[in-house]
Design a protein around this nucleic acid. Structure first.
Lengths: 218, 218
DNA sequence: TGCGAAATAGGGGAAAACCTTAAGCACAAG
DNA sequence: CTTGTGCTTAAGGTTTTCCCCTATTTCGCA
């Protein structure tokens, strides 16, 4: 079995040495390069193609997040696992957005290293307990019984109207786009509010977003 | 080292036997009980306290999702890993909502079993690649650069007003709640739209949601 | 000391929302 | 075959909001 090649990036020599030592316990894992900032990572990638980059977020010159974005753009098959001292939501979001496959806290159990490496090689995303909890909670919150409620409770026409309302169309626009009178649109809107028990446009928009009728960002 | 106790639940004997055989390769994992439906799982838990329940979603009598809800309610320390044939979003959501710590597809690589078991024991959530991808994408989509844009671009007062608008308050309500004239609220709203380059209430609401000024559900 | 930005607020006409009512139609139940 | 229920359509009239303009006061900062 071929060994798993790893590039280790952290600006503190001692930390790198420690992690390398931990990884040495695994016969099938080999640290093939080390870097102490993001730029150096990008440089090393020109000549060496590790399966996994294990990288600190906080580094001088170029931090781990920026480096990840570039790495994933240029070498999309490379898996990046980010290390961080903080469970900060913003970091996590940026990490996942830039294409990282893992996010491990520095106070994680050593076994997490192994789990993360194997998980990401297998195609999954590995997040430290606290982080995965955050992400899962968010998922459960936002995917509120998706589409179930509405699809069942509203007529097709009402759904159409709701969708247009939530997209920001004025009553007139909607009327034009559906070829009906503005007054009819008003009726639909009123009935929507009635059924959804929400008595303002804002509520309608929120419901529409919740049910994925529209994207929450433009 | 004490071995990891597992309760295996699936309505097909052959599947149970197969998984048990896979788990037998690990010296430190021990399947201590088997069930073929959710009710039986609950029954078994009265006398046996496994660390992990590995359970199919689709089962007669009581399915894995319902069973999970009850298990987590009554034995919150037990980790539940659900097995399913489908990457169906609704299932995943329900699974996570009912407190499952893992969701593995039945066509997963065998190594996932081990990864999932160790991950959940460590407190993390394990999701098969396809699933974790879904969840992460959703997370990245919904947590849109939280608070960054707005906090910087708007005055405190404008933020207050925006928040109330997005909560569905009418101009009058906002005026009353801030003890200012409705006309002033209109001014603020106009300036908000100006700065945010969004020319309807819907856009304001979406921005507010995107920036977590309010929750997207009520 | 003045200058811009923030917060306040009014007038007035256009536009939209809100409430009520209802007609035409389809389809299912009685 | 009639009755009822639900969907789509729509109008009239009242209330509210929107929108453009103007204007005052109070800041901090140059």
């Amino acid at each position: 079995m071929e060994s798993i090649t790893i590039l280790l990036a952290d600006d503190h020599q001692l930390v790198r040495a420690g992690i390398r030592s931990l990884l040495n316990h695994f016969a099938d894992i080999e640290v093939v390069a080390e870097a102490d900032n993001g730029l150096q990572v990008l440089d090393l990638l020109k000549t060496c193609k590790p399966a996994i980059i294990l990288m600190d977020i906080t580094m001088p010159e170029m931090n781990g997040l920026e480096a990840t974005t570039t790495v994933i753009r240029d070498y999309p098959d490379t898996k990046v696992i980010l290390l961080s001292m903080y469970a900060n939501e913003e970091y996590v979001r940026q990490a996942l957005q830039s294409g990282a496959s893992g996010y491990i806290l520095k106070d994680a159990a050593p076994v997490e290293l192994e789990l993360a490496i194997k998980s990401v090689l297998n195609g999954a995303t590995y997040l430290s307990p606290v982080i995965s909890h955050q992400v899962v909670c968010d998922y459960v919150r936002n995917t509120g019984s998706s589409s179930h409620n509405l699809q069942g409770k509203l007529t097709p026409r009402q759904l159409e109207v709701l969708k247009l309302i939530a997209e920001g169309c004025s009553t007139k626009d909607i009327a034009a786009s559906l070829r009906i009178s503005p007054k009819t649109v008003e009726s639909h809107r009123a009935q929507l509010m009635d059924r959804l028990e929400t008595y303002d446009v804002v509520g309608l928009v929120k419901l529409a977003i919740k049910n994925n009728l529209i994207k929450s960002r433009d």
